[in-house]
């Protein structure tokens, strides 16, 4: 039996209705008011959160990567996603609580989210703190963790690194329904991580079309890769 902290729906509303945060870059999350809306949830699963190591890794990464440049922001994600996955050792049953990710985003990693997403035109920063469980690319902490969860292979995070190196790729995979079949998510990252957005879009569109007849869950990672490579040759 373990305990996790989760933000309640009312807490989420407080953030939505806050006049300053996060639209004002100088404003912090209204943590004092939010404290009343943090619930402690007992979960039957074993949960281990190594927040000290995670904070250390985040500070180190923020010192290395220049978040003013797009390619370095994606590299920041690529570097941190495996660390978030390792340090937040929770089963998927626990990870399916969006309030868990909202709590971490607002109370532990708001400075990371501000550095990664703040002040960018066309970015809905609020969803990077809140998000929903259906949109895995929205809440930033959930995005990093789930991106790694769906693409790691034992102790190997190579596909995770590749997935996060291209923002178009990670957004597409996390927005797809095939993400739930891990060999497909890994094959997608392995095959398309060097491609331009236009190629990723074209391959993804044809791959999705094929899923109306292919029973994806019976295909191995290699078979999915072969299929994606054939599609890439065709659209190229």
């Amino acid at each position: 039996m373990s305990e996790i902290s989760v933000l309640s729906e009312a807490g989420r509303d407080l953030v939505v209705e806050d006049d300053a945060f996060p639209s004002d870059p100088e404003a912090d999350p209204p943590r004092e008011e939010l404290e009343r809306h943090v619930q402690t949830l007992e979960v039957a699963s074993d949960v281990e959160l190594d927040l000290a190591r995670l904070h250390e890794a985040v500070e180190r990464a923020l010192g290395v990567f220049d978040t003013g440049r797009q390619e370095q922001r994606t590299s920041l994600d690529s570097a941190l996603a495996p660390v978030f996955h390792q340090c937040l050792d929770v089963p998927t049953r626990v990870a399916s609580h969006i309030g868990f990710w909202q709590y971490l985003a607002l109370f532990e990693f708001s400075h990371l989210i501000d550095a990664r997403w703040g002040g960018r035109d066309g970015i809905d920063v609020e969803e990077k703190y809140l998000g929903t469980q259906k949109d895995l690319y929205s809440n930033h902490v959930a995005r990093l963790w789930w991106g790694a969860e769906l693409t790691f292979d034992g102790d190997d995070y190579l596909a995770t690194h590749r997935l996060f190196e291209r923002q178009r790729l990670v957004n597409y995979v996390l927005d797809s329904s095939f993400r739930r079949y891990r060999p497909a998510a890994i094959a997608f990252a392995e095959t398309l991580w060097t491609e331009q957005s236009s190629t990723i879009d074209a391959v993804a569109s044809r791959f999705n079309d094929s899923l109306s007849t292919i029973q994806l869950e019976t295909r191995s990672r290699t078979e999915v890769r072969n299929q994606l490579e054939k599609i890439r040759e065709h659209v190229g």
């Binding site: 998927t92 399916s96 469980q133 789930w146 993400r179 739930r180 079949y181 869950e217 019976t218």
Partner: peptide, 17 residues
């Protein structure tokens, strides 16, 4: 051909045969 049972849980992002 092969008969399978597909297991799918949307909330925990889990799908396999």
């Amino acid at each position: 051909a092969e008969p399978v049972v597909v297991v799918d849980c949307e909330e925990t992002q889990t799908r396999y045969a």
